[in-house]
Structure formats: structure tokens, C-alpha cells
Design a protein around this nucleic acid. Structure first.
Lengths: 154, 154
DNA sequence: GATATATAAGATATATTTTGTCTTATATCG
DNA sequence: CGATATAAGACAAAATATATCTTATATATC
């Protein structure tokens, strides 16, 4: 019951793009290095973000990725679900037919509530806000000026 | 980001016991058949429930499991976390040290909120309430009187 | 105490999912 | 056209989850 790495990577990618701003082209390689995501894995994730209409991918020399919307209009939920599919905390939330009796089932009802709350909370978080302050899980951003070293991993 | 089968099985097991009531001994085999959980897998899950103080395991002929508390005092959260460990939706929730900057990080803050909400919702659900009505994900209970057949799977 | 039955505990096997890489193809710039 | 960047899908590796099997131990009953 934990966000997959792919989902986490998707967030990092959009966060990096959000910091550059809507429409600004950033190369995959650059993003991969800065966010510490394997380049080819990032490519796959980017394709999903593109399919969801969150980013645009430009091929060719000097290609890369760019945000299609203003960061303030992109939610954490949208990014996560673009990568890992719609969130469903329990099987019976996403596939009611997996239960005999999901309409009445009290357990089912709790999961539905929890699932709705979770999605709401993730939907309230937009990338303008997220990008505004320091975000962890990212190697330091361009504005790095000496303090805040790569700290730790490799 | 989905409850594991083990977690689901733990819920079924406690739900079955809750329907019998606190202190009532029910054999593993009986529970396994009724909840459609592989007996040996159920054994492992039961051991975790026992370690968490939710059930008591009796060995020997005519052994089995029984609830140590009144169903009204057992929460969905307690059962789930007994089986799968403490819920943390994102790695950085459970291990703040995995982030450079978890105290300030805005993404981290969202996950913390979501995680707290989820745990609260699961904590509000007690097994007296859950067992009171029909619960899905269970083959029919003793009170079955002909309607509500095993429906479907095998 | 002997026997039958039930669970304990841990080793092992299987399946599934996730993560990461590699290769070939395609697009774009200069 | 050549250099460079991404697309797309096959493939490999790793991690995790699920399930089973075996040996040991506890308890009831005779």
C-alpha cells in the first residue's frame, strides 16, 4: 500500500518541469540527472504523462519535455494516476464485481470513503504550490548555490 | 498502492471471528473454508494477529483462534497494520531520512496528510459495526439459509 | 502414556509486479 | 546527410507477494 517508484518518479519529473514553467522545454537527460531517475525509465513514464495530456514530448535533436498547462492547474492526483492508473486502495474499490455484495458491504464502504478522501487530498495539491518551496526526493535544483549538497546517495 | 491479499485475508479472518463473538473458539480450517483463504497462509496471518494481541491461538486437538477483545474495540486499522505493518503511502512518510528535506518538503506534507487521514478512517471502523451487516469478500456465513449462494468463483 | 488432531514455525517454491536496460526505429536540427 | 534526442517495445533483473510443504509441538481423548 505504497506509491510505486514509477509514481514517485512521475512526480519528480513534473515537479522539475513545473519549476521551469509551462511550455519550457527541458531535455530528458537533464531531468533524469537532476531528479535521479534512470533515463530510460523516465522515458516510459514521460510517455504516460504525455498520453494523459500533462506534458508534450518533442523528438529530434534538442528535443525534450514540456508542460502543457500551468503548474497551478496540474494536481498531484493527475500525475500519479497518469503513471500508475486510478488509485484504488482495495481491489473491491476498483472492481466491485470482485465482491459478492459490494453495495451493502460495510468493509467496502470504509474503503470507498478512504479512497475518496485520498484522491481528494491528492487533488488539492497543485504543482505551482508544490514547486514553490523546497521539495525533497530531488537532487538540488539549478538555484543551488553551494549550500544543500547532494547529500548522501552516491 | 493497494491492500495486499494478506491484509485482506486478515480482515476476513477477524470478521469471521467477530461474528462469532469475543472469546469464541473457531478452528483455522473452518475459518479458512468460510473465508476462502489458503489454510497455511491463514496460519501465518493469524500468527501476526496473535502477536499484535488481537487474537489468541490455541494449539492441540480442538484448537483454533479466538478474539481477545470485543469486536467493537477492534479497528480495521489495527488488523491491517498487524498484518502488513504500519501504513505509509510513500516511502518518505515512513522513513523521513529517505528525503533530503522532509520537514520542509511540500510533497512530503501532502503525503503526511493523506496518510493520516487514511489511518484515521480505518481506525474509525470497528468490527462490531463491520460484522453487523453483510460483508462481501466472504463466502456465506452460517446464517445462510439458501439464498446468497457461493456465487461464482470455483 | 499412546494416538489422533490441530496449530507453530520456518524453509521452500511459485507467481506477479516492479524496476531497469537494451535495441531498433523515428524525428529534428544544423 | 550526420549528429543527437526521443519512441517503442522487447527483454532482463530484482523485489515482493502468494502459496505450499515439512517437521515440530501442543492438547484432547481414550
Amino acid at each position: 500500500m505504497r506509491l510505486t517508484r514509477a509514481g514517485e518518479y512521475g512526480i519528480r519529473c513534473v515537479l522539475d518541469l513545473a519549476r521551469h514553467g509551462k511550455g519550457i522545454l527541458v531535455s530528458r537527460k537533464e531531468i533524469a540527472v537532476r531528479t535521479d531517475v534512470p533515463p530510460h525509465f523516465l522515458a516510459k513514464i514521460a510517455q504516460q504523462l504525455a498520453r494523459a495530456g500533462i506534458i508534450e514530448i518533442l523528438q529530434g535533436a534538442s528535443g525534450g519535455y514540456r508542460l502543457l498547462s500551468d503548474p497551478s492547474e496540474i494536481t498531484l492526483l493527475a500525475v500519479i494516476e497518469a503513471v500508475i492508473g486510478e488509485i484504488s486502495l482495495n481491489d473491491c474499490v476498483g472492481r466491485p464485481e470482485s465482491c459478492d455484495n459490494s453495495a451493502l458491504c460495510t468493509v467496502h464502504r470504509v474503503w470507498n470513503k478512504a479512497n475518496r478522501q485520498l484522491r481528494e487530498t491528492l487533488q488539492e495539491a497543485d504543482f505551482a504550490t508544490l514547486a514553490a518551496e523546497d521539495a525533497c526526493c530531488l537532487t538540488p535544483f539549478p538555484k543551488t548555490d553551494g549550500r544543500n549538497p547532494p547529500s548522501g546517495k552516491k
